[in-house]
Design a protein around this nucleic acid. Structure first.
Lengths: 117, 117
DNA sequence: GAGTTCGGTTAGTGGCAGCTTACGGTTCGT
DNA sequence: ACGAACCGTAAGCTGCCACTAACCGAACTC
């Protein structure tokens, strides 16, 4: 469901554009091109992707298009995240239930390797 | 902060691996290679990225490494998302305040283009 | 100890995504 | 009506990333 959002947020430049819009408020394409170290067409292409994901929307003012952050995409991401979170808990619980025919297996003290290698 | 998480989730295959772990519970590398249409080394490489982002962790059982979803990365993403959401609201409010020296500008009825083009 | 299974790493390749340059369309100003 | 400003799109190139094939080490089995 949130595939397009994650695809869009996967690129650092697009994140920078979004961050610029978040901090500076709505902006024109040329205005973004001044703040993000990339050409104007590149900005335009990225905005297309971000728009497709529902992360930005725009308003035409004469010849310029004013873009701003759209919370719709963020909302989609939040929904996906919450669902994934809950389901991961359920799956883990079921896994424990499945393995724990032998109640010897404990949970808290395994040799589980930690992240941030 | 959540850059590594978003980079990791930016790839469809990695999302598929995560999804497989979420639905099926903990699994070995070879087990994942059977369920995801990609070679075993590719799985291993993706797991490395996912691990670096705190999205999976693993436990060594003899010669096999059992991977499972780690909520740490999801937590990072949630934090980033919530912060972005709130700040976007603030930025928007400030933008309205900045423009609205002329109280003619209305908010609800602009010609704002919608998403999902 | 030999054989097997499992997994991480390396080397090498192909395809795609992001960037720039160039062009065309639209709108505003004079 | 002409020029300028702004933007989107097309074309083309380059670099990176995902993938496979091959190799090597580690651990369990007999």
């Amino acid at each position: 469901m949130a595939d397009s959002v994650l695809d869009a947020l996967g690129d650092p430049t697009r994140r920078k554009i979004l961050e610029t819009l978040r901090r500076g408020g709505p902006s024109s394409v040329a205005g973004l091109a001044e703040r993000v170290p990339v050409s104007r067409p590149a900005i335009s292409q990225h905005l297309k992707v971000l728009g497709g994901a529902g992360l930005v929307s725009y308003e035409s003012q004469g010849t310029r298009n004013i873009y701003q952050v759209d919370r719709a995409g963020l909302s989609d991401l939040r929904t996906w995240l919450d669902q994934f979170w809950d389901d991961a808990l359920d799956a883990f619980a079921e896994h424990v239930r499945r393995v724990e025919g032998s109640p010897a297996a404990r949970v808290g003290s395994t040799g589980m390797k930690e992240r941030r290698a």
